[in-house]
């Protein structure tokens, strides 16, 4: 398998403090990679760099062989990278359906005139957007469909908000999906369920996934590879077992043997 994303020597600093220094990273097509590390290790900054919210000081990010540095966030989404946010950021006053429909913006093309004249092409596209949105939402079982479709996002339960965020990212039809702490705040039952879903995101939808996660159980269950960040530096990478036995990781992150940690 060839790498879908390749990151060279990425460095970014805020006010003289290196948030990430000389990070090298790659993701292969169809892989699920977890990025772990203690708080403040630069994980979310890493996602912000990929999605164009932050510009690096040096280094390069190649997606499918082409540099994506300097692209605006919407252009990054256009070329096929979608993300979720750590502190769930939905469009609260839009309905569940609209939240997912709006995410297909960059995959659709109808302009104002189509809407005003109600052209055939416009109505066809609207129908497709809707069908696709429902298809994406039905991935989560019965939780987000039916009467939920027309509910504003702010009435959803916390777990459902997380699910809707993933649905929204899926709807942008990405090749690479960046999940920022997808199970944070969920109860064990929900975590297990979502872990299965993450596996299915790859097997059924063909997404390559990079995931930031604190829940070691989830990390162990789904990741092909684990990358450990600490103070902006990669201190280890490899399979879950390799990483969890790495003394440096245990010292920096786990603090005590991994088998006791979870």
């Amino acid at each position: 398998m060839s790498p879908i994303m390749h990151i060279h020597d990425l460095t970014v600093s805020f006010g003289g403090l290196n948030a990430l220094s000389d990070l090298n990273f790659h993701v292969d097509e169809g892989e699920i990679v977890s990025v772990i590390g203690p708080n403040g290790a630069g994980k979310t900054t890493f996602f912000n760099l990929i999605t164009g919210l932050v510009e690096p000081n040096s280094g390069d990010i190649l997606f499918e062989g082409e540099s994506i540095l300097g692209l605006d966030p919407y252009q990054v989404t256009e070329i096929g990278i979608a993300r979720t946010f750590q502190n769930v950021r939905l469009f609260p006053n839009m309905t569940v359906l609209e939240n997912v429909m709006v995410a297909q913006h960059c995959r659709t093309h109808q302009h104002a005139f189509g809407a005003l004249l109600q052209t055939k092409a416009f109505r066809k596209e609207e129908r497709e957007i809707r069908e696709r949105a429902e298809e994406v939402l039905s991935f989560f079982g019965t939780r987000l469909i039916g009467y939920r479709l027309d509910q504003p996002a702010f009435v959803l339960s916390y777990a459902n908000r997380r699910r809707l965020e993933i649905a929204r990212a899926m709807a942008t039809q990405p090749r690479l999906l960046l999940l920022d702490e997808p199970v944070a705040g969920m109860n064990p039952k929900e975590s297990v369920e979502l872990t299965n879903l993450i596996g299915r995101l790859r097997s059924e939808w063909g997404f390559t996934i990079v995931m930031i996660e604190h829940d070691m159980g989830v990390v162990r269950d789904v990741s092909d590879r684990v990358v450990v960040l600490d103070h902006g530096v990669t201190i280890a990478q490899g399979s879950y077992e390799e990483v969890s036995n790495d003394p440096q990781v245990i010292e920096a992150y786990l603090g005590r043997p991994a088998q006791d940690a979870s």
Partner: peptide
């Protein structure tokens, strides 16, 4: 829909592929 998304949260709207 794009307008509403921008009204709700401009940064996220952009991250969801809206120019």
């Amino acid at each position: 829909r794009a307008w509403m998304a921008i009204r709700e949260d401009e940064k996220v709207a952009e991250a969801m592929g809206i120019n």
